[in-house]
Design a protein around this nucleic acid. Structure first.
Length: 473
DNA sequence: TGAAATGTTGGGGCG
DNA sequence: ACGCCCCAACATTTC
């Protein structure tokens, strides 16, 4: 009789879970989740909040099928071998992760378990293709997105991504001593800053599929036109569900595969799924991608260290409405519209000259979809130091971006309500308002809402100078 | 998956 | 009628 530990990591679902499927089909299963406090980057606050609810949902689904999800906190390198020994486990299965620290941990664990005569198998549970499966004719990996995605699409034609396996209807479960979910201490207590999150999100596998299907019903066809408008619910908001593996990109792919190539919105949406894959491709192939600029000359960029300025950015008090709206949306909901992520990132880097790592860390702590690969890839893209990056001279203008993508100021009015009574033509540049305008809107600039903390056009010139200094190195 | 500076064109006002 | 200027609108180049 095969006894298998299924180690859930970032694949918190039952459908399209090849590790679980194989374990269930071959005998008894000990489903396990471990909060790794020994080998990996400590989780951000918003991540922990989401994780708690996602685990609660998964635990219930497993219970409904007659088994129990076991929780632990600590070092998997100790916990799993101990469980194997104590419960006479013959096999350990997990879904692969692709970061330097997780690869190191998993490689070690695999060796340890094999030495103890436990069979180990890992599975692809979170990508359409493994990072090493897509490779250019010359060179080890793709450095530009478009050819990467072209190669992906071609490979899907050759061999379709694995069809999702159905969720097991019954799980013949093993039991062991374990901790309660609450013991993992994932929820914020005082203060409970996540109170506002609850109304924005439904968490878990069922909610993820429901959200995707609602998006695929209708909004996916308008995605091309609406995805850039932060006031419109034009995106799928699937990112946290994908990050935690409540839904897999394979499920997404097969839900829309029939229509690929026939609709622009749908194709653009799949391309965004492709960017997610590209992030994993990069972090797998580029050494220290998470911590160092890939283009080495960026090591010499002149960054400023300014805690007060950084704090104003974090708190959405820069005096640029679109930036402040984004930062406040992030704080209030754990998520920020992607268009606005680019704007606030450009502002931090190219207006305040603060290192992208500091922005990356803040996003890591506050985003419910914080994903090492995609977060880092995004920040390096804006900084210009990453693969297929935004060229150094591409500086976002927070005023024109606001006017272009939130022309009626609805997004500003939602998240920066002190400006709500300003007319549309002033809402992205309140410092240009006449005294009478301000009086009418009931704002005193510098008191109710800050004056702009920097002069953008001066900052832009300064940014170009600083980038020029490292350009040809 | 920018924006600003610079160049070009063409209509209208005007002497 | 014509040339000249202005400038908006659009295009191209540059950062």
């Amino acid at each position: 009789m095969q006894k298998t530990i299924v180690w859930f990591r970032r694949d918190l679902r039952l459908t399209d879970h090849p590790a679980l499927r194989k374990a269930v089909d071959n005998g008894k299963v000990l489903p396990v989740f471990i909060l790794d406090t020994a080998n990996t980057r400590p989780l951000g606050g918003a991540t922990k909040w989401w994780l708690h609810h996602s685990l609660a949902s998964l635990a219930k689904s497993i219970e409904d099928r007659g088994a129990k999800l076991h929780f632990y906190a600590g070092d998997p390198l100790k916990i799993i071998p101990e469980l194997c020994e104590k419960h006479d486990i013959s096999h350990v299965y997990w879904g692969r992760q692709y970061f330097p620290d997780t690869i190191k941990r998993d490689t070690q664990l695999k060796a340890d378990l094999q030495n103890a005569d436990v069979e180990v198998e890992s599975f692809n549970t979170s990508l359409l293709r493994e990072p090493w499966e897509i490779a250019p004719k010359s060179g080890p990996f793709y450095k530009v997105f478009t050819p990467f995605w072209g190669a992906c699409l071609e490979s899907f034609k050759q061999e379709t991504p694995n069809l999702p396996k159905s969720a097991p209807s019954q799980i013949d479960g093993l039991s062991a001593d374990s901790a309660d979910l609450a013991k993992l201490d994932l929820l914020p207590t005082k203060p409970n800053w996540a109170k506002g999150f609850t109304e924005h999100w439904e968490i878990g596998e069922d909610a993820a599929l429901k959200r995707f299907r609602a998006f695929a019903e209708d909004r996916i066809y308008k995605y091309n036109n609406q995805r850039d408008l932060p006031a419109v619910d034009g995106t799928s908001k699937l990112s946290p569900h994908l990050h935690f593996g409540e839904i897999s990109p394979r499920q997404v792919y097969h839900e829309v595969a029939d229509e690929m190539g026939t609709d622009k919105g749908l194709d653009t949406y799949m391309k965004e799924i492709g960017w997610r894959e590209f992030g994993y491709h990069l972090i797998y192939h580029i050494e220290d991608f998470a911590t160092k600029p890939w283009k080495e000359q960026f090591e010499n960029f002149t960054w400023d260290h300014d805690d007060a300025a950084f704090k104003r950015w974090q708190q959405g008090q820069t005096g640029y409405p679109i930036v402040d709206a984004g930062m406040r949306q992030l704080w209030q909901t754990g998520w920020m519209h992607n268009r606005v992520r680019m704007i606030v990132a450009s502002f931090l880097i190219k207006d305040l000259f603060i290192h992208w790592k500091e922005g990356e860390e803040w996003f890591w702590d506050t985003l419910v979809d914080a994903d090492l690969a995609n977060n880092v890839a995004g920040w390096q893209w804006v900084a210009g130091s990453g693969a297929d990056a935004s060229p150094y001279f591409r500086v976002f203008n927070p005023i024109t971006q606001g006017e272009k993508f939130d022309p009626k100021g609805q997004y500003i009015r939602e998240f920066v309500p002190e400006l709500k009574d300003l007319p549309n033509d002033l809402i992205h540049k309140p410092w240009e308002a006449k005294n009478s305008d301000l009086l009418l809107a009931g704002i005193e600039l510098g008191k109710d809402y800050p004056k702009p903390m920097v002069d953008h056009s001066k900052a832009r010139k300064e940014a170009l100078d600083r980038y020029n200094a490292i350009k040809d190195q």
